[in-house]
Design a protein around this nucleic acid. Structure first.
Lengths: 248, 248
DNA sequence: ATTAACTGTGTCCTCAGGACACTGTGTACG
DNA sequence: CGTACACAGTGTCCTGAGGACACAGTTAAT
């Protein structure tokens, strides 16, 4: 409602630049405690269960007392995200950019499966905290030995993230309208009823899926990156790259 | 608030299966009129400006009169989408699956640029209308001559859609936190301040972008699909495929 | 003409987020 | 040592959202 969205203040909160309070009585909780309880509520009852009132009650506080800690719900969400993302996976075990990126994608997938509300919320124009920022930093490290430009590396990282996000359950963000979710059976019926107008979709929807969209998409994505990378490598004449084996 | 979400009713509304009302007075408006005004409001003032009250007022109605046409805001949104998506591009001019998919991506991009609120809303578990359904149907037609399975074609189509969606302005859905949006300068400052913790991101963010993420990502994506397709083709020994020329 | 079905209105409710004044409390400083 | 200030937490109020529901007015089929 109100013009409460001050990105500067949010940044200071997330990056630990708040001036230490000395004068009055000590606050009963700290930001980490707030974030953890809010995350717990979101995990167990869904994101829509997270309201100022609810979280405050969970802590034995009044709703308005929460505003002593955060400037509004935006800030609450921000510290929730920061608390939930966790640390990015260790890519040092994987060899080659491709294996590293796959490992990264797995890690992302795991984190988002653990907190199903996370993918739908880590989106759009916003201020990120240091813990969340560590993720793309880690992903970039997978591509340092490639001939891609810095921008292209970031683009590639974003592509992987977006793909994992997009394929992560229809309930949160997926648009897998055809395969999962409560609307899927209805859509199937409608397509079969109108098979003449939508012949391709109708036949496609009728058959069961073997592989997942996530696997296939990641394969295509990494194959595309690999093509670009090997092309650059051949032209420049250095850099080794780990290739996926051709199937028989 | 209330359990108003009946996907069956929504489907009937979208697919024109409402029983014709005979008995009482004629309604002053029809669904198309509702949808158009709501779309206009969303286009000019943003999606958050679309409320039941607002749209009703726009039509010179009371809020509750709107509920005679739609069962709730979910249905309003659904007919808004259906009105705004428009018709998919004609792919018959492009030769080869790759050019067709590129054309499709362009069309999608155009539609979403015209209605910036659209990408953030055409997401998740929901019932689609016939006009929106025509889009993936069209995209599938681009891939009929490829050796991909039906499922893989749908996956490929989804990948393209997701990519265009993801790269379509931070304000709506993009997560292009590093490059656009009001939070970007703050993030830049934070990264430069903490360059020791995030060396890769810090350097990456410092340099200006030459190509867009959308172009690079689509390139990688289509390259990946092409690799898979040509691989299948070589193995099966048929199918022609349009390849992008190698740069010098 | 009657009646049933329907459109649109007005009132009320719940539940968000949030502003603001107030009470109580503890620490720093004169 | 005491006072003043800064702060934590409470209670009350407001706005604005979606929505339920009863009612008045209207019209077409019977």
């Amino acid at each position: 409602m109100s013009a409460n969205e001050d990105p500067r203040a949010l940044a200071e909160l997330l990056w630990g630049l708040r001036k230490p309070r000395i004068r009055g009585p000590r606050p009963a909780f700290d930001l980490a405690r707030l974030a953890d309880t809010a995350v717990k509520v979101a995990d167990t009852e869904g994101l829509e269960a997270v309201s100022m009132h609810r979280i405050a009650a969970e802590l034995g506080l009044t709703k308005m007392a929460l505003y002593r800690y955060v400037n509004g719900k935006t800030e609450l969400m921000a510290i929730m995200i920061e608390a939930a993302v966790g640390t990015p996976p260790d890519l040092s075990g994987a060899v080659g950019w491709r294996a590293k990126l796959e490992e990264y994608a797995r890690g992302l997938s795991t984190a988002w499966r653990r907190h199903p509300w996370l993918p739908s919320v880590t989106v759009g124009d916003r201020v990120m905290g240091p813990r969340e920022t560590a993720w793309p930093e880690t992903a970039l490290s997978a591509l340092t030995d490639t001939p891609l430009t810095e921008r292209e590396r970031l683009d590639a990282v974003m592509m992987v993230s977006h793909h994992i996000r997009a394929t992560h359950s229809a309930a949160t963000q997926g648009t897998q309208t055809w395969t999962d979710g409560s609307a899927a059976p209805i859509m199937r019926d409608l397509l079969l009823l109108n098979a003449s107008r939508f012949p391709l979709l109708a036949t496609t929807v009728a058959i069961p899926s073997t592989t997942t969209t996530r696997e296939f998409g990641l394969l295509a994505l990494l194959d595309g990156l690999e093509r670009i990378i090997t092309q650059r490598t051949h032209n420049n004449g250095d850099e080794q790259t780990a290739s996926r084996p051709d199937p028989p």
